[in-house]
């Protein structure tokens, strides 16, 4: 990681009157990686993204976007940032193509370059067929895809996506994931905020959890060293429970089903458990991680807060 790439935020604070929307956020998002920004409603995600996008001045703290300070070098920072807002407004009377050529012009791309870029992006987000329809006939998901295309017009180094998956159908979600992974592979820094944690599981490399305006945890999704819960089901749940107890493996019964939840560290531990169960003559019908990594981490943090 180059010292001036990606997103770095340290001690960022911002309040609106008496409301401390962002109280103390530290965040690092590295180039070539997808970083998830996770937090409950009202935890300050959108406010943080506005500050990263250079629209809002932080009350305190330091922010660097691809090396530029969005406060002191706002223009440079803006030129390197692509921002897709959560509340999606669009120029209703313009066609999808015109929206993109207008944004291209606003980024000082010449007319021919803008037209070429618009066609390319419409192809990328599968809106070519609707390119010459007015934007107000697009569905919410289609508008969302247009918004993503709009954030990509000037080929930014840093992408800030605020709830990009909301309103998307399953096909578009898969497309979004593939696209985001591809952009990360090109070396872009991508920060995604979302509530759909299982979605982020497959998309993100790192995760930053914020709650009540503070960074509460930073995790790596691919990190296999952390213990996580696995879900086991057997043909005879009683026998399975008995064996686990006999074996000395800490376990608990799933609250809403027949499965048993076991905390394991890494895939090897899971394989070992399965082997010993079979050797002991227990009929295991399934073994799999219970929920996503991020979901578990999120719920664990929620637990801690109570």
């Amino acid at each position: 990681m180059t010292p001036d790439g990606g997103i770095r935020a340290q001690g960022v604070r911002r309040s609106f009157g008496p409301v401390h929307a962002v109280a103390d956020v530290d965040l690092v998002a590295a180039p070539g990686r997808v970083t998830a920004l996770i937090g409950p409603n009202g935890s300050g995600k959108t406010t943080l993204l506005l500050m990263l996008a250079g629209l809002l001045t932080p009350d305190a703290g330091v922010i660097r976007i691809a090396g530029a300070d969005p406060v002191a070098q706002n223009y440079v920072a803006r030129s390197r940032t692509g921002w897709m807002p959560d509340v999606f407004g669009t120029w209703d009377s313009l066609t999808a193509r015109e929206v993109l050529t207008t944004v291209a012009a606003a980024y000082r791309i010449d007319a021919a370059g803008g037209r070429a870029r618009a066609s390319e992006l419409l192809e990328l987000v599968h809106l070519s067929e609707l390119a010459d329809q007015p934007a107000h006939v697009l569905s919410r998901g289609q508008k969302q895809r247009l918004g993503l295309a709009r954030a990509l017009v000037h080929d930014p180094d840093v992408l800030l996506l605020d709830e990009p998956a909301s309103g998307l159908d399953p096909r578009s979600r898969v497309d979004l994931r593939v696209l985001v992974r591809r952009l990360a592979a090109e070396g872009k820094t991508i920060l995604v905020s979302s509530h759909v944690l299982t979605e982020l599981d497959e998309m993100a490399d790192d995760a930053v959890f914020i709650s009540r305006g503070r960074t509460v945890a930073t995790r790596s999704v691919a990190d296999g060293d952390r213990p996580r819960e696995w879900r086991l089901t057997g043909l005879d749940p009683e026998a399975l429970a008995a064996w686990l107890a006999e074996n000395g493996t800490p376990h608990r019964k799933e609250a809403d089903g027949p499965g048993m939840l076991v905390e394991l560290t890494g895939d090897a531990a899971a394989a070992a458990l399965l082997r010993s169960a079979i050797e002991a003559g227990i009929d295991v019908s399934s073994i799999a991680p219970a929920g996503g990594v991020l979901e578990q981490a999120y719920l664990a943090l929620e637990e801690e807060r109570r």
């Binding site: 996008a53 940032t81 921002w83 509340v87 606003a106 980024y107 709009r150």
Partner: peptide, 10 residues
């Protein structure tokens, strides 16, 4: 919600 999308451009 369309003003900010102009403000973030150049």
């Amino acid at each position: 919600g369309t003003l900010a999308t102009l403000q973030v451009t150049l």
